[in-house]
Amino acid sequence: MKKFLLSLSALTMAIGLAACSSNNESKTEKKEATKEAAAPKVDVKKELVKFYMKIGNKINAKDADLNSYIAKASKEDATPEEMPTAEEKAKASESAAAVAAELNSLKVPAELKDQKADLEAALKDYAASYQAKADDLKKDKPSLTAGDDIFAQGEEKLGKVFEAAKLFPPTLGKQVN
C-alpha cells in the first residue's frame, strides 16, 4: 500500500509540475503579445510626408542665392544691367554646393527603415543635381539646366516610394523653386 501511495503521489506531483510548466509558457506568450501590442505602429504615410517636407525645408534654407541667380539669368528680355553679376554667380554656386552638402548629411528616419535604400538613392540624386549646378556655375557660361536630369531621377525614385505607400508622388521641384 505504501508503494501504491508513493507512486500515486509521484504521479500527482508530475502532473502538477507539467501543469505549472505549461501555465508559465502561456504567461510568457501573453507577455510577449502584450509587448508587441504596446509597441506603437508606425504610420509610414505620415513619416514619408514628414521626411519629404524636411527635404524641402533643408533645400529652401540654403538655395535662396541659387534661385535668385536662376530667376535673373533666365529672364528673356533682360538688359545687360539686369543680368546676374559675377558675385551673384559665385553666391549661387556656393548656395548650390551648400544644398548638396545638406542633402548628403540628411539621414532617413528609423521609422522608414523599409524604404531607407530607396530614399537614400533619391537623396543621392538630389544632392548630385545640386552639386552639378554648383560645378556648372563655376564655368564662364553656365547652363541653367545643369543637374535637371539627375534631379528628375531623384523625383522618380521618391515618387515610387510614395506610390508604394499608396500616396501620390510628390513634386519636390515645385516646393523648392
Rank of each mutant, 00 (worst) to 15 (best):
N104M: 01
E47W: 03
E29Y: 12
P109R: 13
A122F: 00
I59N: 04
E163M: 07
V42Q: 01
D135G: 09
E88M: 08
K41T: 04
L123K: 02
Q175T: 04
E25S: 06
T85H: 05
K133S: 11
L48E: 00
S68E: 08
K91E: 14
S22F: 14
E25A: 09
L17S: 13
D63C: 10
A146W: 13
K72D: 06
A71T: 14
L8F: 14
L48H: 01
V176L: 08
L112E: 01
A73I: 10
E36Y: 14
L8H: 07
K58T: 10
K54E: 08
K133Q: 13
A86G: 11
L48I: 00
A19E: 02
F51M: 03
V42H: 05
P80Q: 04
L103H: 09
Q115V: 08
E155L: 01
S93L: 09
F162Q: 00
L103P: 08
K72W: 15
V176W: 15
A10L: 15
L5S: 09
A96Q: 11
M1W: 15
S74V: 05
A39N: 09
S95R: 04
K54T: 10
A33N: 11
L172M: 13
F51K: 02
M83H: 04
S105G: 14
A96I: 03
G16M: 13
G159M: 05
D43C: 01
A152N: 11
A18S: 15
T85L: 13
S95H: 06
S68K: 14
A121V: 04
L66I: 06
G154E: 00
A97K: 03
A64R: 06
K27T: 11
A18G: 15
A100V: 02
A97R: 05
T171I: 11
V44A: 02
D125W: 07
V42C: 06
D63M: 05
N23T: 05
G154W: 00
K174E: 08
A165Q: 05
S74F: 11
P142K: 08
A134K: 09
I15G: 07
A132D: 02
E47S: 09
D149P: 12
D140Q: 12
V42I: 05
I59T: 10
A146P: 09
P84T: 07
Y126D: 02
K75S: 15
A78M: 14
E82V: 08
A121K: 05
K50C: 05
K174N: 12
K138W: 12
V108S: 02
E94L: 07
A128T: 07
K113N: 12
K89C: 06
K50P: 02
L123V: 00
A152I: 01
K139Q: 07
K133G: 10
Q175H: 04
E155F: 00
N67P: 02
K160I: 01
L6Q: 13
D140N: 12
A110K: 13
V49I: 12
K75G: 00
A18N: 15
L137S: 11
A110G: 06
S93D: 05
M83G: 03
K124G: 01
K3P: 11
L172K: 11
V42T: 04
K124V: 02
A38S: 11
L66F: 15
K113S: 15
D140T: 06
K45Q: 14
